[in-house]
Amino acid sequence: MATNVFINLPVSDLARSKEFYTSFGWTLDPNFSNDDAGAVAISDTIFLMILTHQHWAQFTDKPVADAHSTSAVINAISVDAPEEIDTLVEQAVAAGATENKSQELGFMRSRSFSDPDGHAWEVMWMDPIAQSGDWQAVQAKYGDQQPV
């Protein structure tokens, strides 16, 4: 059985966040969305729950962090091809994201962005050779690049 992942994020403007996350192809599930929350399918096994601050408070006694000024997590997702990174990040930026750091290692590539609430996302691709852990094959293909 596949394990599902649910990423929960507090958002200051639910309508804006629903529009933002669906603008680059992720799907809002109306069965689990209402005026307090939006369920966004990223893939068949990864889901994003965007929650109003009031709804978020039902799950924790901690205050909502200002993700524009603090950092606690980077939500990283992989894509099947390096060019998909550019497509997704450019769509996110067009929808109101702020682009952050990028990484080019040959065998691995990533770009990152922050959503309108400041939540950090990284979109990455890794060559299947590197995923196998065969660093001799990676060096043969890419030279002196080292795994992180």
Rank of each mutant, 00 (worst) to 15 (best):
residue 72 A to S: 14
residue 77 I to C: 06
residue 74 I to V: 15
residue 125 W to H: 05
residue 126 M to G: 03
residue 92 A to C: 06
residue 130 A to R: 08
residue 83 E to D: 13
residue 56 W to N: 08
residue 122 E to F: 00
residue 44 D to K: 12
residue 98 T to I: 09
residue 15 A to K: 08
residue 104 E to T: 02
residue 49 M to Y: 11
residue 115 D to V: 01
residue 65 A to C: 09
residue 34 N to F: 00
residue 12 S to C: 01
residue 74 I to E: 14
residue 25 G to C: 01
residue 128 P to F: 06
residue 14 L to G: 03
residue 63 P to D: 15
residue 4 N to L: 14
residue 109 R to N: 11
residue 73 V to G: 02
residue 101 K to N: 14
residue 42 I to W: 07
residue 37 A to I: 12
residue 144 D to F: 01
residue 82 P to M: 12
residue 104 E to G: 05
residue 115 D to S: 06
residue 19 E to G: 09
residue 131 Q to A: 13
residue 100 N to K: 12
residue 90 E to M: 09
residue 115 D to W: 03
residue 57 A to V: 01
residue 28 L to I: 03
residue 121 W to A: 05
residue 71 S to N: 14
residue 72 A to N: 15
residue 19 E to I: 02
residue 127 D to E: 00
residue 144 D to H: 09
residue 110 S to Y: 06
residue 70 T to E: 13
residue 66 D to A: 11
residue 33 S to C: 05
residue 60 T to M: 07
residue 99 E to D: 08
residue 40 V to G: 01
residue 108 M to A: 15
residue 125 W to I: 05
residue 89 V to I: 10
residue 131 Q to V: 09
residue 56 W to Y: 15
residue 32 F to T: 01
residue 108 M to C: 09
residue 131 Q to Y: 02
residue 87 T to E: 15
residue 6 F to R: 11
residue 28 L to A: 01
residue 1 M to H: 09
residue 123 V to G: 08
residue 52 T to G: 07
residue 145 Q to V: 13
residue 133 G to L: 05
residue 34 N to I: 07
residue 112 S to F: 07
residue 11 V to F: 08
residue 97 A to R: 03
residue 106 G to T: 10
residue 98 T to D: 11
residue 1 M to K: 10
